[in-house]
């Protein structure tokens, strides 16, 4: 019944025996102990479990671990390097784009693919782009600002202000 699979997560290969019914999010969290990828709804709705599979954002609660055999998986744990935070992490940090932080890993992984495909998104494109990720705290405005900031940073442009707006 079980299958032997190798998952390449953030550049490291992990070989494991799994039942075909094991969800990728469980393989990542339980078998590899990378718990940065969250489970929010478990019904493909909230995006907290978003990771990248071969660079494409995916809800890992709706993918089987066996389907990811041989694919490159990226999770939030792989973002920061010895040199420091990934620009998207920096953007979320400086723009106060998180409160409880539960949605943040999925939100950032989704934003990475969005900026990869569309390095210079408009506010509307950002809002559509993160429409599969729910946040119950921030009201989204600072998340949008963080993604705009990261877009500027990644292209070496002038950085927008990170001062909070009081209205």
């Amino acid at each position: 019944m079980t299958k032997k699979i190798t998952l390449k997560i953030n550049g490291t290969e992990h070989t494991m025996e799994v039942e075909p019914r094991m969800l990728l999010v469980h393989a990542i969290r339980e078998n590899v102990s990378l718990t940065g990828t969250h489970i929010g709804c478990d019904t493909s709705s909230c995006g907290a479990c978003t990771i990248l599979i071969d660079g494409k954002s995916a809800k890992s609660c709706t993918v089987l671990a066996v389907q990811a055999q041989g694919k490159e998986i990226a999770t939030v744990e792989g973002l920061a390097t010895a040199e420091g935070l990934h620009p998207i992490q920096e953007g979320f940090h400086l723009n106060h784009a998180l409160h409880c932080g539960f949605c943040t890993p999925g939100m950032m992984m989704r934003a990475i693919e969005l900026l990869e495909k569309n390095p210079n998104p408009t506010e509307e494109e950002i809002r559509w782009g993160i429409s599969g990720n729910l946040c119950r705290c921030t009201g989204y405005n600072n998340i949008v600002k963080a993604i705009e900031w990261t877009s500027a940073k990644m292209q070496g442009k002038d950085l927008p202000s990170t001062e909070p707006e009081f209205v």
């Binding site: 493909s44 995006g47 978003t50 954002s57 995916a58 559509w128 429409s131 990720n133």
Partner: peptide, 12 residues
């Protein structure tokens, strides 16, 4: 397609 689910679902 724009109205079908969300970007992650549309990747699959």
């Amino acid at each position: 397609t724009k109205l079908i689910a969300d970007p992650q679902v549309r990747n699959f």
